[in-house]
């Protein structure tokens, strides 16, 4: 190596070194001089939150929610992604007690698939529920699921799907961000606290009287009040629809009588299947699912371009 190259390399390295030292001194000084006091709890809560930034808590992102907890006294158990574990962490940071918060999961208050819906007509408009909801006559029921899948599009976790025209939540994948509940133009998806893995729900949203419901749907709730009578007021009827009082519901409450009495099968268990359900379908043979791997996706034929 000749002298010229050596000197060039040395001077170049020296220049970068001087530049780096000078800049780090200036920035180090600025960091102290322009220091902003941030409540250490905000950083701690930010670390405790899952950083999904889904907006399920009602704030723009996890950072805004952390600020709202500290400055505005927002509830600590709003994070649907982290659930009780995160709420406990946040409670510890804020020094408050966490209530027995259950994770909220969406429930579709409709149980009618295409065959059960009456008065359906051909629809040629834009294939979204929002558009179809604007006009009358797509289907008889003006309360129930339209089945165009606005909720499916809103879900970022592939946890809700349209099965035979009805939105079905996949509770294994769902994190409870409530995006589907916000997307539904008919507001038939609500967030319900899942205290147990299986939850009893009222799978109908039709507020009309029994005869009108029967004209548009084969499974809709007719408002007969039998569930209210059997459960001694755990259900109460509002607008011809039973409302289940989840706050006063015991975890192991037996809904057997109510399920037997309901003439329209509008009371539905959602969530994880029970042991009996699994046993019932144990003998069914499921088709093999081919996992995508090198062998199934790469074409081994020789390329002769």
């Amino acid at each position: 190596m000749d002298l010229m190259t050596t000197v060039t390399i040395a001077v170049a390295a020296g220049t970068m070194l001087v530049l780096a030292v000078a800049m780090s001194l200036v920035l180090g000084w600025a960091n102290r001089a322009f220091h902003v006091e941030v409540d250490p709890r905000i950083d701690a809560i930010n670390d405790a939150l899952p950083a999904a930034n889904c907006g399920g808590c009602g704030y723009v992102g996890c950072g805004e929610y952390a600020e709202a907890i500290v400055h505005e006294g927002a509830d600590i158990d709003l994070c649907p992604v982290g659930g009780p574990a995160t709420a406990a962490d946040v409670a510890e940071i804020m020094g408050v007690d966490v209530g027995d918060a259950a994770p909220k999961r969406p429930v579709v208050h409709c149980s009618a698939e295409y065959p059960q819906r009456l008065g359906r007509h051909e629809y040629a408009g834009e294939m979204t529920c929002t558009s179809a909801n604007l006009i009358a006559g797509v289907q008889g029921c003006i309360y129930g699921c339209l089945g165009f899948g606005d909720c499916v599009m809103a879900c970022e976790y592939d946890a809700i799907h349209i099965v035979n025209g009805l939105a079905k939540v996949d509770y294994d994948k769902c994190i409870g961000c409530s995006a589907c509940a916000r997307a539904c133009p008919r507001n038939i998806i609500t967030m319900i606290p899942f205290k147990t893995e299986r939850v009893m729900t009222v799978a109908c949203s039709n507020k009309d009287f029994g005869k009108d419901v029967k004209n548009v749907c084969e499974t809709g709730c007719i408002g007969c009040k039998s569930c209210e009578k059997v459960t001694k007021g755990l259900f109460h009827l509002e607008n011809n629809l039973p409302i289940l009082d989840y706050d006063h519901l015991a975890d192991d409450y037996d809904f057997g009588d109510a399920l037997k009495k309901c003439p329209m099968e509008s009371l539905v268990w959602v969530g994880k299947p029970s042991a009996e359900d699994i046993a019932e379908t144990a003998d069914e043979v499921l088709p093999d699912v081919v996992e995508a791997d090198f062998k199934t996706t790469v074409d081994k034929t020789e390329w002769r371009g």
């Binding site: 010229m4 000197v7 060039t8 001077v11 170049a12 220049t15 970068m16």
Partner: peptide
């Protein structure tokens, strides 16, 4: 003449 022009972009 020493030429350090190669450093321009990075600087």
């Amino acid at each position: 003449v020493v030429d350090l022009s190669i450093l321009n972009y990075i600087i």
